[in-house]
Design a protein around this nucleic acid. Structure first.
Lengths: 148, 148
DNA sequence: TTAGACCTTAGAGTATAGTCTAAGGTCAAG
DNA sequence: CTTGACCTTAGACTATACTCTAAGGTCTAA
């Protein structure tokens, strides 16, 4: 099948498939005479594998490792795959905890504010962000990535 | 005070302060004869305001809005600030839910795998990612941003 | 035979938020 | 008068994962 068909069946876009090819994740089994990419059923299952891995939250780099395990299973051990999954679990849990702390802080911030049409002269949100002795921020952890 | 001092006192870096200046968030009140940035106590409180807002999970764009409210409070109403906070709460909540779903899926994936030194020939992680009829993925939502 | 859908490539652009570099100027202490 | 810490600028680079563009070639059906 051609790239458009693979895109349709895998849920990825043709652009993304070409991008993944550049990244070394998936490549067509053959090319047509006119140089079109031609994919096999095997390729389709690889594309779905990638898509599923991404949905599970794995990075392209992690997917690459999974693919290499998948490509030569006897050369790998279960721990190779499980370690990645375990680490991802830890990462996701940590991220959730971080977000929950942010959420608590946001609620404190928001609940104190009337949110009405009144002038912001005494807006408690702005005040809380301004006041260095405010009680809203419970920690000073630097959030590296955007929260949302 | 010069930029290094402001950096120290605000918890930002000099680089970041210059970056924020380019973004229009904060600028020094004056310049020295030798063109050094000179910041006032006011500027320090603005820098802290930005830092605190970032820690709360607001984007630079959102911080910009907060700063404009802060700069001219009578021209704004509480709702201006509260709307942003409320939306951020919704965003963070949604992100948490997404991550919790991912976490459940990851646990299913990981728990099924022995994770030992055995050959990955029958690794359930790889199998689950591979099998199109697997029961691990509970939804097909496309995660736009990286999970962690 | 021609319109339209599909394919090709290299490379640029998007988003967010910094982070760093190079080449040079300033300033206080010893 | 020199050393070292600090400052200046424009602009390039990082990270992640796409997303799109331009300019052109291919294929299929009416």
């Amino acid at each position: 099948m051609k790239i458009g068909e693979l895109a349709k069946q895998s849920g990825l876009t043709a652009h993304t498939l070409r991008f993944y090819e550049k990244q070394g994740l998936i490549s067509p089994s053959t090319r047509s005479q006119s140089n079109y990419r031609l994919y096999s059923q095997q390729d389709l299952s690889t594309a779905k594998f990638i898509k599923r891995s991404r949905t599970m939250g794995f990075s392209l780099e992690e997917v690459e490792v999974f693919l290499s395990i998948r490509a030569d299973k006897p050369a790998h051990i279960c721990a190779d795959a499980k370690d990645i999954a375990q680490q991802k679990i830890i990462d996701v849990q940590q991220k959730i905890e971080e977000l929950q702390q942010v959420l608590v802080a946001l609620h404190k911030l928001s609940d104190a504010c009337c949110g009405g049409g009144e002038s912001a002269e005494f807006c408690s949100i702005i005040d809380a962000l301004d006041d260095s002795e405010n009680t809203v921020t419970s920690n000073t952890t630097n959030i590296q990535e955007g929260v949302v």
